[in-house]
Write a protein that binds this DNA or RNA. Structure first.
Length: 434
RNA sequence: GCGGCCGUGGUGUAGCUGGUUAACACAUCUGCCUGUCACGCAGAAGAUCGCCGGUUCAAAUCCGGUCGGCCGCGCCA
């Protein structure tokens, strides 16, 4: 039975079997040292020339080949970490071409150019920090799901092929669909709201989102994983904010418990579990602060520079990494956001900023059919959204929800330089492979 | 799409006030080495310097174009 490398230390004196990649070969003619790597860690394997059969089997063995080793686990002062395996039998399961296009172990200079690494992503992912990113992603998603599960959400999987371009329309991918056109969903927005009209009360979706935006930044991709949720019977968008606070607090507590040390060692980041409630600023308040700080202002929205500045300000003032920006004006928000009762130019919506980047947009939705149809008209959306407004025609609870970019969340948690580093396989304007 | 910067063996860099064998480290190949651990030692192969054109006796180096990339902006999660 194969055991994981991290468990070898509990098997001292026993014969064990391991499988993994050959990370390093140190051949000294009468003795060879191999560093073997599996999902759980690395171990030194020592091969003595007395074992002529196994010795011969490693002729021509190359770095990054995949092997199976049977041998004795032993304590050895001279071995790294004091534990090694003495090889009795070694099988080459897959011989790697010795001319690796990119190194797995980087010995000199900086890291290989990100674009080159992504051409060879399957090799890039063999590195420890990439593996750690994948492990943390898995746990992060598990904690989000656990939160939704414990709070009685239903999971939906809405279709990604749509018959008409939803929302804005300009940023959707068009695909051939038999003898007509279809569009890739750029958000589960309409369908998760439909679930509210169906009485499902609380739903979440983990799924791909497609954006045909020609964006060249460290925080955009054309396909990404979205975490979306929608909840019924809210009083206002503040109920959505409260839910998000509890959710993020829950997720980051879980991550901190499990990976605090690894995140510090590998990424140099402290995981901070945010205090509830998170700070909030209205757009007007944020603009006033930014003006006092002398940050150049963008008309009525926040520029990336302003987002960074406001987060720095909150961090210093309140020691908090998060801040909700509320009271967005209606002209920069979609027609389905509910408007304030006492000020029809302001939406009941908010963006959540984390360490300078927008990670969530949330709002109370307009569930009143007549009001919604009027707002759509006002935004110049004619009958094209009829299929959507119909959801609200036959009874629909007041509701609201949010969308969160999973890679953005992970990027900020680990302080990665780009969303690409927080993604298994990146999709951007110029990247469709691998 | 706009702006800034960049493109040199497989990888990371040096050279780039023009001058003829394009340098270094790692990786690769050959030989030697019984405890290495960034193993070591000796040697070898590997680059028409992104591409096209121009200036010049001479271009990796200067100029123009083009393609590709990174970063920033717009847009957003």
């Amino acid at each position: 039975m194969r055991i994981y490398i991290k468990d070898i230390k509990n098997k001292i004196g026993e014969e064990i079997k391991i499988k993994g990649f050959v990370q390093t070969i140190r051949d000294q003619s009468k003795i060879k040292f191999l560093i073997i790597r599996d999902i759980s860690g690395i171990i030194q394997a020592v091969l003595l020339s007395e074992n002529s059969e196994a010795f011969k089997a490693t002729d021509g063995l190359t770095n990054e080949s995949v092997v199976e080793i049977i041998g004795k686990a032993k304590e050895e002062k001279q071995a790294p970490e004091g534990v090694e395996i003495e090889i009795r039998e070694i099988k080459i399961l897959s011989l790697a071409d010795p001319n690796l296009p990119i190194p797995v172990v980087e010995k000199t200079g900086g890291e290989v150019d990100v674009n080159k690494r992504f051409d060879w992503r399957w090799i890039d992912l063999r590195k420890n920090d990439k593996l750690m990113m994948m492990k943390i992603w898995t746990e992060m998603e598990r904690f989000f799901r656990k939160f939704w599960e414990e709070n009685k959400y239903l999971e939906i999987h809405s279709p990604k092929l749509m018959g008409s371009p939803s929302e804005s329309g300009a940023n959707v991918f068009e695909v051939k669909y038999f003898d007509r056109k279809a569009y890739l969903a750029q958000s589960p927005q309409f369908y998760k709201q439909m679930a509210m009209a169906s009485g499902l009360e609380k739903v979440f979706e983990v799924g791909p989102v497609f954006r045909a935006e020609p964006s060249f930044t460290t925080r955009h991709s054309t396909e990404f994983v979205g975490y979306d949720a929608e909840i019924s019977y809210i009083e206002s968008h503040q109920d959505v904010i409260g839910e998000i606070e509890r959710m993020i607090n829950f997720v980051l507590s879980g991550i901190k418990d499990k990976f605090e040390g690894e995140i510090r060692d590998v990424f140099g980041q402290e995981v901070v579990v945010p205090q509830i409630p998170f700070p909030q600023l209205t757009m007007a308040e944020a603009k006033k602060i930014l003006s006092n700080l002398g940050v150049p202002s963008q008309d009525n929205d926040l520029s990336p520079e302003e987002e960074r500045a406001i987060c720095d300000y909150i961090k210093e003032k309140e020691g908090h990494e998060f801040v909700f920006i509320t009271e967005y004006p209606i002209d920069i928000r979609p027609f389905y956001h509910m408007r304030k009762e006492d000020n029809p130019n302001i939406t009941k919506s908010s963006d959540l900023l984390w360490k300078g980047v927008e990670i969530i947009t949330l709002a109370q939705r307009e569930h009143r059919y007549d009001v919604l149809v009027n707002q759509a008209k006002e935004k110049g959306l004619g009958n094209s959204v009829d299929f959507y407004t119909n959801f609200f025609k036959y009874g629909c609870p007041p509701h609201g929800g949010f969308g969160l970019g999973a890679s953005r969340f992970l990027m900020k948690m680990l302080d990665l330089p780009s969303i690409r580093e927080a993604t298994y396989l990146f999709r951007g304007v110029n990247r469709l492979e691998p």
